[in-house]
Design a protein around this nucleic acid. Structure first.
Length: 595
RNA sequence: GGUCUCGUAGCUCAGCUGGAUAGAGCAGCAGCCUUCUAAGCUGCGGGUCGAAGGUUCGAGUCCUUCCGGGAUCACCA
């Protein structure tokens, strides 16, 4: 790495010329701003505390010393306290050559002895997937891929929330209003059908509440006393008691949902190594809670409910088991965490869950630590921001929830429409064209969702937000396709550019600009892993594509007459295409050969 | 009310552990296709980085207070 080499050299200079052991942290390089000459800039201000002198004088001294000691430096200039270094072209050309020989662009910076288990998606089985899930799924999948690309031993898991009062509501509604409907006899996607039942329950439940309120009950009483909710609670109890008919209906309806989810996941291009079901882990959770009770980590209230008192840590009491013995969210999560640790002996358990659950995960961690689980330190809540619409949060009762399947359909249709208007893909066979529209539509969606810092709340404007021009997925795809087209033509013209002979050319500004951006890759990939941020990869893609397009605009490639320079430009093009392809792959974005 | 979090151009977002005159895209205006893909490129206009203090040679970035938005503090998940 260029900067590390220069850092070493600089440390030696301080040691020999100034008799100083400098803290390496003080040495910071940054990319030279475009308006100045140079590639790398050293900020000398931090050294002034140790060496009492004028910043310009020191910068000049360091520049001269670096020139003498390092072959890498071609020239330097000083502006105020900034030492701008120009790196020799040989370095960039050599770097280009070495990277063209790479087969992949991964690296090993993560200790891979203990697995990293990352959970994402975590759907409930009573409702179809929506826009919020899309952010979650893309983020989780992409972070997993990024960690893998850094050498991590990653296990992707999904936790399906297949039990609880919510699914009982859908089941009850199906019994009462379902009229025997099934995905088979209606053609409706399974998760959508179950979702309709849930809505039907809600509607009938609301009606009962209004009726009770009309009779003089308070709204709180009405919510509790409505016959439907009582029936649903009864059903949950039956379920936990293993009552056969309830279990059978539950199984049937959940399977409808799973086949629906599968379609959505496959279309989104995300996958899992293992799927956990809460129905299989909540008993373990209960067991651990009971153990905690005997160890007096928890306590029991008069009504029989079990709690954990966290008030000495500035938090509240937390319910772990209801008075009727049924489990709550926390009970399940304690069980799943334990099971997941037992399965993999994971060093890290990452949960990709919305920031609305920050408190929940804080509590989960503390409870597990109180229970003496040493692995609880490895629990990390990858907390991402909500997706909002221009008019605010999505609300199911106002019908503003953006359905995942519908959104993907819409994106792909738009891609097709735009492609046809532009006359692209005209020569393609039908199937290839379909594939292309699909790739473009999904790229637009994925890039749009992933380019934003995961921690931030983001706004999604269905009408105008998703674009195909400018800072978008299709822009990056277009750049790739353009390069591929040039390379195909080069092959047709029997030009070869893969040979390793050293080129004798002086780099031109736009050529070097592309190379210096590509040169950042290893650091970007590392930072993306550390910060769990696919957004850094997305920004890299955009910067590279933008820079390449500027290069492309200004410099002829195939029409360049100087053979060495033509070769150089083809090599830059090839490496750009390959790195775009690799980096986009980490976001789940496919790069078409042509578009 | 307590805790957490966010506030950068009309809109959507960048801005790495503090570094030079705060950047993109969209939208608006003006240009560039007899030459490698115009989903591209070039230029113009648009900002007291929510406000005020503080630390520092240097603050969009760190600290304090305040203002504004969001989340959470459930026998919902």
């Amino acid at each position: 790495m260029l900067e590390n080499i220069l850092k070493e050299t600089l440390l030696n200079i301080f040691k020999n010329d100034y008799q100083l052991e400098i803290d390496p942290e003080l040495i910071s390089f940054q990319q030279t701003r475009a308006e100045f000459e140079g590639d790398l800039t050293l900020v000398v201000f931090p050294f002034l505390k140790l060496i009492k002198t004028n910043p310009v004088v020191l910068a000049n001294e360091l520049g001269a010393a670096l020139m003498k000691q390092s072959q890498l430096i071609k020239s330097y200039n000083v502006i105020k306290g900034f030492l701008n270094l120009s790196i020799r072209d040989e370095y960039w050309l050599n770097w280009l050559k070495n990277n063209l020989e790479r087969t992949g662009f991964e690296q090993s910076v993560i200790d891979n002895s203990a697995p990293i288990v990352i959970e994402y998606s975590s759907p409930n089985t009573n409702k179809p997937l929506h826009l919020g899930h899309i952010r979650n799924n893309l983020l989780g999948w992409s972070v997993a891929e990024i960690l893998r690309a850094n050498g991590g031993n990653v296990v992707k898991v999904n936790l399906v929330n297949d039990r609880g009062i919510h699914i009982c509501k859908s089941m009850l509604a199906w019994q009462k209003f379902g009229e025997g409907k099934s995905p088979e006899n209606t053609g409706v996607k399974g998760d959508k059908l179950v979702g309709e039942m849930y809505v039907a329950f809600d509607k009938a439940y609301k009606a009962e509440q209004y009726e009770l309120i009309a009779k003089g009950y308070s709204s709180e009483e009405a919510a509790k006393k409505a016959p439907l909710i009582q029936e649903a609670q009864q059903m949950l109890l039956q379920w936990e008691n293993g009552e056969q008919e309830t279990r059978k209906l539950w199984e049937t309806m959940n399977n409808w949902v799973y086949s629906g989810f599968d379609l959505t996941y496959r279309r989104l291009g995300i996958d899992f190594d293992k799927i956990y079901y809460e129905s299989e882990t909540y008993l373990l959770g209960k067991q651990i809670v009971m153990e905690g009770l005997t160890k007096a980590v928890f306590f029991k209230k008069d009504d029989g409910s079990i709690w954990c008192d966290l008030s000495d840590e500035g938090l509240d009491e937390k319910l772990l088991l209801r008075a009727d013995g049924t489990s709550v969210y926390m009970t399940q999560d304690i069980g799943t965490a334990q099971l997941r640790y037992d399965d993999y002996k994971a060093g890290k358990l990452i949960y990709v869950v919305g920031n609305e659950q920050n408190y929940h995960f804080d509590v989960l961690r503390r409870i597990l630590i109180r229970l003496g689980k040493s692995w609880a330190d490895g629990i990390e809540h990858l907390s991402y921001g909500m997706v909002e619409l221009p008019e605010g949060k999505m609300k199911s009762r106002e019908g503003t929830v953006v359905d995942a399947d519908d959104l993907m359909d819409e994106m792909v249709q738009t891609a097709q429409k735009m492609s046809e208007e532009l006359g692209k893909g005209a020569g393609l066979p039908h199937e290839a064209a379909e594939q292309l529209y699909n790739d473009i539509g999904l790229a637009a969606l994925k890039y749009y969702m992933l380019r934003v810092d995961p921690r931030k709340t983001m706004t999604f404007n269905p009408a105008e937000s998703i674009d195909f021009n400018g800072n978008t997925g299709p822009f990056v795809q277009y750049t790739h396709a353009r390069i591929k087209s040039v390379l195909r033509k080069a092959v047709d013209n029997q030009l070869s550019w893969q040979s390793n002979t050293s080129l004798s050319v002086e780099l031109m500004p736009k050529e070097k600009a592309v190379l210096t951006l590509l040169h950042n890759w290893n650091e970007i990939l590392k930072q993306a892993a550390i910060n769990r941020s696919p957004a850094l990869i997305a920004n890299f893609l955009y910067d590279v594509a933008k820079s390449y397009n500027q290069f492309y605009q200004d410099n002829p490639i195939l029409r360049e007459s100087n053979a060495d320079r033509r070769c150089l430009r083809l090599q830059i093009s090839e490496l750009t295409a390959r790195m775009l392809n690799y980096a986009a792959g980490l976001l789940g974005i496919r790069m078409p050969e042509q578009m």
